[in-house]
Structures are given as structure tokens and as C-alpha cells.
Design a protein around this nucleic acid. Structure first.
Lengths: 187, 187
DNA sequence: TCTATTTTTTGACTTATGTCAAAAGCGATG
DNA sequence: CATCGCTTTTGACATAAGTCAAAAAATAGA
């Protein structure tokens, strides 16, 4: 749980009571490679913090799996659309490695939001960060060509290429696996 | 200011004091078509609420203007990356019509965040909504073909096509103006 | 160590979309 | 109502990336 707390402290101050409240509702979860945290059509009712391992979020679009994020150690993970709206999501979250996670339920989190300003602030800040990251990716993915997108990934997040099968990475970069393979062989 | 308050109430409860505090720091701003709220290289230090008019956010990427959002009545507008990180942004925000806006500064907003839980909650919720919208657009834009993206826009946000020049819309949809023009003529 | 399965690469071909350039349409201004 | 500037359309051509299929390489299991 220490990894989580020290990660949180990077974002904002956190009172001792808030830490304790949070600690009391976190549940440790261990799952194996290939398992799912949520799947299409389900309401995702928890946020997870990744202590160890990696995961991907993907949609099924026209019969194809579209991977649109990866999460690693010290990332928060949920199907945000479903979590926020309380409606069934389109998203699947799958473990790419065996994982150690910390889970907090929607209800517990919202009790903490009401009780501790600190937690509310944390929620807001994490959201801001995730928005900003998505925005950067949105712009670069959609308006640069395939080779640039690959090279940008190499420069900013090479660990993804080391831990994730190429097919998922290709999808994440918005190209086919064949195209990514060709780009790699010519560089 | 009523439009703003009733818009806020759609998201969450808001105490009378929070409303009053907010009201006391909001500044009315009127600007003309073509003017900018922020430009590349500047720190964006305000959030704006659009009472009347429309705007676009765009990046300069490899010498091209990439429009990646539009805002209309009842939307909040800022260069979020710059606003959140306090660093110069890459983004330009330009008025596409004469506008009536309400402005709140970073400092005032963060004073309110500290003082009123309600405002903090509002900030979090608005962020969540904006994240979710961006995510939907990210997936549909990047993984569907040009014609589908256009038809999706027609179905979900036809007002954009009525109020915004085609070149900006094409960029927003991730295609050239020529392609968008051809798609429209063949449908 | 030797299969069996999954992942990655390579090849041949197709196609959607981009590029460049010119024409047409439209709206504002004097 | 004629002209100027901006927006949109059309045409001809180029090309990045997709598709389908098979071979090669890597990984995991027995």
C-alpha cells in the first residue's frame, strides 16, 4: 500500500485521516494474466491501482479489438465512462501479466469524496492528468503518420514495446500489425 | 450569469454560498470573431464559460492547423494542459463568432476549490465528463474511416456543420477539406 | 529436447485518402 | 451591381497504409 500512498503524495497533500480512511477501504486483488477487470456490457464499479503488472483497455469495434490504453505500475485503472456514468461500458480491461492491484469501489470512493476534501482534490487532479495525457495522444495519433507515431512511442514510452505484444501496440498506435512490423524493420 | 448557474446545477448540488462566491469572481468578457483567448507559447490562466457564440481550439502541427475541438453555448473552455500544468501551452483558442463569455482566473478558481467542497466536486465532475467525451471521440476518430466519422458527426453534432467553416470541420474529423467535400457530395 | 501454439515478418496487391492545382460559388463592401 | 477575398468543389495523380495469405521466428508445454 506504500507505493500507492507515495504515488498519491506526488499529486497533492493528503491528511493523515484521509490516508487512513483510504487505507481502510482498499482491497488487495491478485489476478492472473488473461483475466478481466471488466468487460463490454458491464458496469465497472471500481477503480484499481496497479502495484505490479500491466493491463490494457480495449474496445470491440466492427469485429476488431482496438487497444487504446496500457497501464503499468503506479497507474490508476478503470473503465472511466462506465464508472462515471454508472452505465454499462463498451470497454474491456484485460491483464497482460499477472497483477497485484488495490481496489476501491465506487460507493467507498464517493463516501470518501464527501468526507475528505483531500480525496476530492485528488480525484480532480488525477482526472486532469489523465485528460491531458489523452489529449496529447489524441493529437499525435490522429494527425501524424504511422512512422512518426511509432518513433514518438519509442521516445516517450519504450517500456510499452518491451512488455506488450506487437499486435496490441499496433492497435494502440492506430495501425495494423503488418504496418508496424514493416516500420520497425526499416529503422 | 443565470445560464451558467443552471448549467452547473445539472452536474451537482451547489450551495448558496458557493454560488455567491463564484458569482463574485466571474468577469463578463465580450470579444469579436477572430480574436484569441490564448495562443501557442502562452500560459492559459483562465477558464471561460460560453454564454453566447462559438470557438475552436487548434494546434499548429508541421505547419498545419489542427482543430481538435469546438465549443458552443454552455461549454467550458480553456487550454487545459496549460491551465493545469501552469506551463506554456501548444494550443490556440480562437473565436469563430462574436462571443459573450464569463471568465474565472486560475487563482480565483483554486481559492474556491479550497473554500467550497461543492466547487471542487464540480471541477472533478466537469473533468470526468470532458474526459469521457474525448475518449469517445478518440476511439471513433482513430479507428473508423472518413465517411463513418462524417456520418457520426452528422448524427451527433450537426450544429457544428451549420456554424463552422468546412475546413475546420475537416481538420476536426481528421481528414482534408477535399476529402470531406467529396464525402458530402456523394451522400 | 521436440512439438504445438502464438507472435512476428514478408510478399503481392488493393484502396482510401492526401496532394497540388484550378475552377466555381458565395458574401461582404464600396 | 461589380469586385475582392474567402470558402467549397472538382479533377488528375501519388502514396501511405490496409488486406489477405503464407512463411519464419519465438515461446511455452509435454
Amino acid at each position: 500500500m506504500q507505493a500507492l500512498f507515495s504515488h498519491i503524495r506526488q499529486y497533492c497533500d493528503f491528511s493523515q485521516e484521509a490516508i487512513e480512511s483510504l487505507g481502510s477501504v482498499l482491497k488487495p486483488v491478485k489476478l492472473e494474466k488473461g483475466e478481466f477487470l471488466t468487460t463490454e456490457g458491464k458496469v465497472c464499479s471500481s477503480v484499481y491501482f496497479v502495484e505490479q503488472g500491466c493491463l490494457r483497455g480495449y474496445y470491440n469495434l466492427d469485429g476488431k479489438e482496438i487497444t487504446y490504453w496500457f497501464a503499468f505500475e503506479n497507474n490508476f485503472v478503470t473503465s472511466l465512462l462506465s464508472f462515471v456514468t454508472r452505465n454499462p461500458g463498451m470497454e474491456n480491461i484485460q491483464l497482460l501479466e499477472d497483477c497485484k492491484l488495490w481496489e476501491i469501489s465506487y460507493d467507498d470512493l464517493h463516501r470518501l469524496y464527501k468526507k475528505h476534501t483531500d480525496v476530492n482534490t485528488l480525484g480532480r487532479i488525477i482526472n486532469e492528468r489523465y485528460y491531458v495525457m489523452l489529449e496529447e495522444r489524441f493529437v499525435s495519433n490522429h494527425f501524424k503518420e504511422a512512422r512518426d507515431r511509432y518513433e514518438n512511442l519509442l521516445a516517450t514510452a519504450p517500456h510499452i514495446l518491451q512488455r506488450v505484444p506487437l499486435g496490441h501496440v499496433a492497435s494502440y498506435l492506430g495501425m495494423t500489425q503488418e504496418t508496424l512490423s514493416r516500420i520497425r524493420s526499416k529503422s
